[in-house]
Computed example of a mutant assay.
Amino acid sequence: MKIEPKHVVSLTYDLYVDNNGTEEKVESATEEQPLTFLYGAGQMLPKFEENLSTHSTGDNYEFRLTAEDAYGEYDEEAVANLPKEMFEGAEIPEIGSIIPLQDNNGNRFRGQVVSVAEDAVIVDLNHPMAGQELHFKGTILNVRPATEEELAHGHAHGPDGHHHH
């Protein structure tokens, strides 16, 4: 079956990024644990879906997304200094750790601790894959029309559409 909007797609993928000139595999989805999503529901990167649009069940695919089409260019400005008082009563996070944050509008996001100064924790708010070209390879395992319930919920309920229990 061909991939179309309002269809549920299950696929495997290996995601590679360039690490100083060598391709490094950073994520993958296997046949046992595939990525299953409702196509066209806006859950995936738009260009990821666009690249899959010509494929059908059983196809192998391979494509690259530029940083701009993936998680955006790296933004030097997207670094925050969090006053240490924010962590009062809690441990100061370690460098390299990812911490959950919330902005003044209540939007949740994550930041990676890049350094700890005397009175502040410096956090990089860029997506961990910002500024990177993404290289995807994989196989389309299954394509099926979404159920009415899945369309109502706006997401897939698993590779074969079983209900939540």
Rank of each mutant, 00 (worst) to 15 (best):
N126D: 14
E49L: 00
S28Q: 15
H162Y: 14
E31W: 04
Y39M: 06
R108K: 15
G58D: 07
A146D: 02
E23L: 14
L11V: 03
P145A: 14
L15R: 02
S115C: 12
P128E: 02
P5A: 13
D18R: 09
S10A: 11
I140H: 02
D18M: 08
Q102N: 04
V123R: 01
S56V: 09
L52A: 02
F87P: 01
H164S: 06
Y74N: 08
A152M: 07
L11I: 10
E24I: 02
G106K: 08
M86N: 12
V143Q: 00
G89V: 11
E76D: 12
G40V: 01
V143S: 03
E88S: 15
A117P: 01
T12A: 09
E24T: 10
E88K: 15
P93S: 06
H153N: 15
S115E: 15
N142P: 05
V113F: 06
E4M: 10
P159E: 10
D59L: 02
P145I: 11
F109Y: 13
L134F: 06
H55S: 13
P159Y: 00
T139P: 04
E77V: 13
M86D: 12
T30S: 15
D160K: 14
E150W: 03
P100L: 03
N19V: 08
Y16E: 08
G111C: 07
A41T: 05
E4T: 11
A117H: 13
A41Y: 08
D119C: 02
P93V: 05
G154V: 06
T12M: 07
G21W: 02
Q132I: 00
L15M: 12
Y71V: 08
A156Y: 00
I140R: 01
G158L: 06
F48K: 00
V121R: 00
V113R: 03
E24H: 10
N19M: 08
L101W: 09
P100V: 06
L101N: 04
S28Y: 13
V121I: 13
P100Y: 03
